[in-house]
Amino acid sequence: MNTVIFRTVAPYLAALMVLFSVFVLLRGHNEPGGGFIGGLIAASAIAIYGIAAGVDEVRKALVFHPIAVAGLGVFLAGIAGLMSLFVDAPFLKGLWLFLELSDGSELALSTPLLFDIGVYCVVVGAISSIALALEEDEETR
């Protein structure tokens, strides 16, 4: 697997996949997509980069440990649910905030989005930590 072509292409491919995963995450509210599928794409990007550049390189590039990213995801999802405490609504009620931008368009921020970002982080963290663990094992043999 460790050919020159692959090693050259892998960083660009991984970057493109991460970008695409964010796109999929953000369009997920009303169209096909969402946090889970976006997270899987990002985790595959990390796995590909890991095969090409080595696991140590990936861990350095990620800065945070994948499990910590998963923890952040659980935290964000939980916070998204707890937001409704302040509007006297039950747990996990969807809350929306519409921001008018200067060019007249509208930016919709919501707790479902926050929840989805949380799911994205959980999936990226959990799946990439499994993938990296397996790849690390492959390298040391």
């Binding site: 440990h65 499990i67 910590a68 998963a70 923890g71 952040l72 995801g73 659980v74 935290f75 939980g78 916070i79 649910g81 707890l82 747990f91």
Partner: peptide, 19 residues
């Protein structure tokens, strides 16, 4: 009724981040 579930979940999340 939410706190017995939400508190340990958030606690676990924070501790995972503070590894």
């Amino acid at each position: 009724i939410v706190w017995p579930i939400a508190l340990p979940m958030l606690g676990a999340a924070v501790l995972l981040m503070a590894r």
